[in-house]
Design a binder for these strands. Structure first.
Lengths: 112, 112
DNA sequence: GACGATGTGTAGCGTCGCTACTTATCACCG
DNA sequence: CGGTGATAAGTAGCGACGCTACACATCGTC
């Protein structure tokens, strides 16, 4: 999949992976890979900064866990994040509808 | 609609407006407004540079027409442009499918 | 002991849509 | 005649953001 098509849609995807419960960054990334059949396979240099951005924006919160002496940073949706996710969903619907209508296969005149 | 969600999808939309025949920039913009029910309403500062970019890329070609003493720049799909439009279509399909699957409405607990 | 998977992170770059502005002709209305 | 809005094309500069390319650490496996 081409690179930058994500622009502006990444936040919603990240938030959605946290909807079912807290996850750490690596697991968020994996959830996107798995849930998209490998189509959305983001480099870590995309995921981690994006999570930090979302935290700065107050849409997710994080805490550190120590598992087997290894540090894991666990992210969780905030209330604002839940609302933002809803907004992203409807925004996506609207956008996808508009683009599909414009780009979508034309109903060819029956003669073709 | 939020601003930057277009990122990476604009080219396909522009190309698609030229599929049915040549148009000038202003008409391209109008076609997007009309075809999206006003949802996609781009400033001219987005449309014209994007068309120039597509022409530099060889996906469209332009010629000047003089109508009533006014200059109009008419754009037209090239062969490469037609191929690119096809590629954008399938790329959009793939992307939209993946995002919808990930973001898609969860079966809400009946209470909402 | 080397390698890959797991896990987190940063610095810097490039793309691209946007804001804000300019220039010009024409139709319409008062 | 003057003002306003639609039509028509354009540029300069900015900011957001995903990407590349790294660095670092632990664990299990060969």
């Amino acid at each position: 999949m081409r690179a930058d098509v994500l622009k502006g849609h990444l936040d919603g995807l990240l938030l959605s992976t946290l909807e079912d419960g807290p996850r750490h960054g690596y697991a968020v990334r994996k959830a996107l890979v798995d849930g998209s059949g490998g189509r959305i396979d983001l480099p870590t240099g995309t995921v981690y900064p994006a999570l930090h951005r979302l935290e700065r924006a107050g849409l997710i919160s994080s805490r550190w866990l120590t598992v087997d002496g290894r540090q894991r940073r666990i992210y969780e949706l905030t209330t604002d994040g839940r609302h933002a996710l809803g907004a992203e969903r409807s925004s996506w619907q609207e956008f996808a509808t508009a683009v599909s209508a414009l780009l979508g296969e034309k109903p060819w005149p029956a003669t073709t």
